[in-house]
Write a protein that binds this DNA or RNA. Structure first.
Lengths: 187, 187
DNA sequence: GCGTTTATTTGACTTTTGTCAAAAGTTCTA
DNA sequence: TAGAACTTTTGACAAAAGTCAAATAAACGC
C-alpha cells in the first residue's frame, strides 16, 4: 500500500490522521485473469488502484465488444460513469492478467473526503489527470485514419501494444481487428 | 454573477468569505462573434463561465479544422489541456455568437483553492461532470456509423444542431460535412 | 432590395475500412 | 507433446465515407 500512499503523497502531504483513515478503509483484492470485476447494469461501488496486473473496460455496441480503456500498474480503475454518478452503468471491467488491487468503496471514499476536506485537492488533481487522458483519446479518435491512430498509440502507449490482444486494441482505436492486422503487416 | 454563484452554491454551501473572494477575483468580459478567445501555441490562463452566448473549441489536424466542443449558457469553457497543465496548448477557442463571459485566471483560482481548501470539492465535482461528458463523447466516436452519431447528437444535444454550423458539427462528429448533409437529406 | 459573401447541398468518383470466411499461428493443458 | 482452444492473418468482396467541384441557398452589408 506504500506505493499508493506515495503517489497520493506526491500530490499533497498527507496528515497522519488522513493516512490512517485511508489505510483503514482500503482493502486488498487479488483477482485471476478472466474475472469480470464490474458488470454493466449494476452500480459500481468500488474504485481500484492497480498494484500489479492489467485490466480493461469495455461495453457492447451493435452487438460488439468495445474496449474503452486499459489499466496498468499504478493506474486507478473503475467503471467511471457508474462510480461517479452512483447509477447503473454500461461498462464492464475485465481482468486481463492476474492482478493485485487496492480498493475503496464509494461510501468510504466519501467519508474520507468529508473528514478531510483538503483531500478533495487530491481528488480534483487525479480527476483532472484522467480527464486529460480521455481528451487526448477523443482527439485521436475524431479525425485520423486507422494508420495514424495506430502510430499514435505506438508512440504514446507502447505497453498497450505489448500486453493487450489485437482485437481489444482494434476496438479501442475504433477500427476492426482485420484492418489493424493489415496495417501492422505493411510496416 | 448571481447565476454562477448559484450553480456553485448548489454543489456546496459557500461561506461568506469564499463568496467575497470569488466575487473579487472574477472579471466580466464581453466578446463579439468571430473573436478568437484563446489561441493554440499559447498557455491558457483563464477559465470562463458562459453567462450568455456560444463558444467552440477547435484545433487543426491534417490541415483541417476540427471542433472538439461547444459551450453554451451556464457552461464552463477553457482550453482544458493548457489550462490544467499550464503548458502551451493545441486548442483554439472561438466566439460563435456575441457572448458575455465571467472569467478567472489560473493564478487567482488557485489562490481561492488555497485559501478555501473545501472549495476543491466544487472543483472536483465539476471536473467529474466534464470528465463524464467527454467519456460519453468518446463512446459516441468510437464505433458508430455516421448516422448513429448524428442521431445520438440530436437526442442528447439538440441545441448544438440549432445553433452551430454544419461544418462544425460534422467535424465534431468526426465525419465530413458532405456526409452529414446527405444523412440529413435522407430523413 | 441587391449584390456579395458565406454556408449548404448535390453529383461523380475514389479511397478507406468493414465483413465474412477460411487458413495459419500460438498458447495452454491434460 | 498432441490436441483443443484461442488469436492473428489473409483473401475476396461490399459498404461506408471521403474528396473535389459545381450548383443552390441563405445571410449580411450597404
Amino acid at each position: 500500500m506504500e506505493k499508493l500512499l506515495l503517489i497520493l503523497g506526491q500530490l499533497m502531504p498527507l496528515s497522519t490522521e488522513l493516512r490512517e483513515d485511508l489505510i483503514a478503509k482500503i482493502f486488498i483484492r487479488k483477482v485471476k485473469k478472466g474475472v469480470i470485476l464490474i458488470s454493466e447494469g449494476k452500480i459500481c461501488h468500488q474504485l481500484f488502484f492497480i498494484k500489479k496486473g492489467f485490466l480493461r473496460g469495455f461495453h457492447y455496441q451493435n452487438g460488439k465488444e468495445i474496449t474503452s480503456w486499459f489499466g496498468f500498474e499504478n493506474d486507478f480503475a473503475t467503471s467511471t460513469h457508474s462510480f461517479f454518478s452512483q447509477k447503473t452503468g454500461y461498462e464492464n471491467v475485465e481482468v486481463i492478467e492476474d492482478s493485485i488491487l487496492y480498493g475503496i468503496t464509494y461510501e468510504d471514499l466519501n467519508k474520507v473526503y468529508y473528514r478531510h476536506p483538503e483531500f478533495n485537492y487530491v481528488g480534483r488533481l487525479l480527476t483532472e489527470k484522467y480527464y486529460l487522458d480521455v481528451l487526448e483519446r477523443t482527439l485521436c479518435l475524431q479525425f485520423q485514419t486507422a494508420k495514424q491512430s495506430y502510430e499514435q498509440l505506438i508512440a504514446t502507449h507502447p505497453q498497450i501494444l505489448k500486453r493487450a490482444y489485437l482485437g481489444h486494441i482494434a476496438s479501442y482505436l475504433g477500427i476492426s481487428q482485420e484492418t489493424l492486422s493489415r496495417i501492422r503487416a505493411k510496416k
